[in-house]
Computed example of a mutant assay.
Amino acid sequence: MKNNTLLKIGTSAAVLGLLTNQACKEKEDKVTPIDLIIGDWKIIDIDGKNAIEEADDHFYFLSMEFMTGGSVEWCYNYQYPLNPNDNNEECYQNVTWEWLSVEDSILMLISEGDTSTVTVDFPTSDLMSWEGIEGDRVLHDNSYKLERID
């Protein structure tokens, strides 16, 4: 009887340990919007329209790098397929970002006193989209789709 009781206690402790270990592992593996937003993104769609502008000899696109600490670098990237040595980019660092609500994926972008508040969605870890909630002083458009480029 004593051995049977010890066996039950030992089995219960082992099961509890496995469940706790699995719960901790799932918690560690969970990726948050904070983790996903950091990196380089290319804007591929603005208000349902292709955001990559093409000209006769080149094309350009906007990219954003979200950095830890709340900075954003905006860049205009010019690509010349026939003359790759002419490729260049113009970058600006006058934008910051902060999460207003990580749970609701609400992000605020701030530039020179102007703000835009957006809801952010990550259909995959390589795609991000957002819809404007209020303010349009930073973004000037309501809907963006971005693709990870790093």
Rank of each mutant, 00 (worst) to 15 (best):
G70N: 02
I52K: 09
L100P: 03
I106R: 12
L82T: 15
G39E: 04
L62E: 07
T32D: 14
P123G: 01
K49I: 12
L82Q: 15
D56E: 15
E65C: 12
T32R: 08
D126V: 07
L107N: 08
L127S: 07
N88Q: 10
T11S: 07
S111W: 01
M108Y: 00
V95A: 11
G70S: 03
E65M: 05
K8T: 08
D121P: 05
N77F: 02
I44K: 03
Y78T: 14
W41Q: 10
V72M: 01
T68R: 15
N88Y: 15
P84R: 03
M128T: 01
Y78H: 13
N142R: 09
N94F: 09
T96G: 06
S71C: 06
I44C: 02
I43P: 01
E134P: 00
I149G: 01
I9D: 02
E147D: 02
D150K: 05
E73C: 04
E53K: 07
K30E: 03
I52Q: 09
L82K: 15
N88T: 07
C91E: 02
N4H: 12
S143P: 04
E131H: 15
V95D: 08
D114M: 15
S63N: 07
V15E: 02
D150A: 07
D40P: 00
L62G: 09
M64R: 08
K30A: 10
A51Q: 11
R148D: 07
K30F: 10
W41D: 10
E98H: 10
K30Q: 06
Y144F: 13
F59T: 03
L139R: 05
F122D: 01
D45S: 15
D104H: 12
E103D: 05
L100Q: 12
W130F: 15
S125E: 14
E28Q: 09
